[in-house]
């Protein structure tokens, strides 16, 4: 891999993060679906973690969270802390389980939205926002998670399109290559006991 190729992923992720936050703040936040605002940022962070791994996911989450906090004049560090966890866990899922099912991004997107929404609310409570926890609030949280889940697959496809070609090692490609170039699939491999 040449040096220019090595910079490709960070550059693409930087552009993706910048555009995500700007578009989120300037347009997407002002669109409401079933009474809640759409939040693309945790979905994008989780997608990057799933595609690029835990370390790029965590760094991307930190950067996007910090940028969002600065741009929205919120307490610095709150969103970055949550997004680090989302990017890292999505990346670890890819590294440990290497899930190939087409609906994995949907489940990860739902989990990321749930974590971001509930985590943000808990952080605000801990930092002093005085608001009662009501059924209405819980209903809003559930609706937010559902809306996030609906958007998870298209967002994942979009992020994959952006980072495609700059990823150092695509696990699916790697597995496919192993089978087609003479490597045995795990099902065909003789067990140690035989």
């Amino acid at each position: 891999m040449s040096q220019a190729d090595g910079y490709q992923l960070p550059l693409r992720l930087a552009a993706l993060g910048f555009l995500t936050v700007v578009i989120q703040i300037a347009a997407v936040s002002q669109v409401t679906v079933f009474g809640v605002s759409i939040d693309l940022t945790p979905l994008v962070v989780a997608s990057v973690g799933l595609l690029a791994g835990s370390l790029p996911g965590a760094i991307f989450g930190f950067a996007v969270g910090l940028f969002a906090d600065v741009a929205l004049v919120q307490t610095l560090g709150v969103t970055s802390l949550l997004f680090i966890a989302i990017g890292y866990w999505a990346g670890r899922l890819r590294e440990l389980r290497d899930p190939a099912h087409a609906l994995v991004p949907l489940a990860v997107g739902a989990a990321a939205t749930a974590f971001a929404t509930v985590g943000f609310a808990l952080m605000q409570f801990m930092l002093g926002v005085r608001a009662p926890v009501s059924w209405l609030l819980l209903r809003q949280v559930v609706v937010t998670i559902l809306v996030g889940s609906l958007l998870a697959l298209p967002i994942f496809a979009l992020v994959r399109r952006v980072v495609q070609g700059s990823l150092p090692d695509d696990p699916r490609r790697r597995r496919r290559r192993a089978y087609t170039t003479g490597g045995l699939s795990p099902l065909q491999r003789p067990s140690a006991g035989r």
């Binding site: 989120q24 703040i25 300037a26 997407v28 936040s29 002002q30 809640v36 605002s37 759409i38 939040d39 693309l40 940022t41 969002a68 741009a71 929205l72 004049v73 919120q74 971001a116 929404t117 943000f120 609310a121 605000q124 409570f125 926002v129 608001a131 609030l137 809003q140 949280v141 937010t144």
Partner: peptide, 14 residues
Amino acid sequence: IGRPANNLLLDRLQ
């Protein structure tokens, strides 16, 4: 020109 993504507990606009 802007609005926070999570408006459940912070409702502001820029």
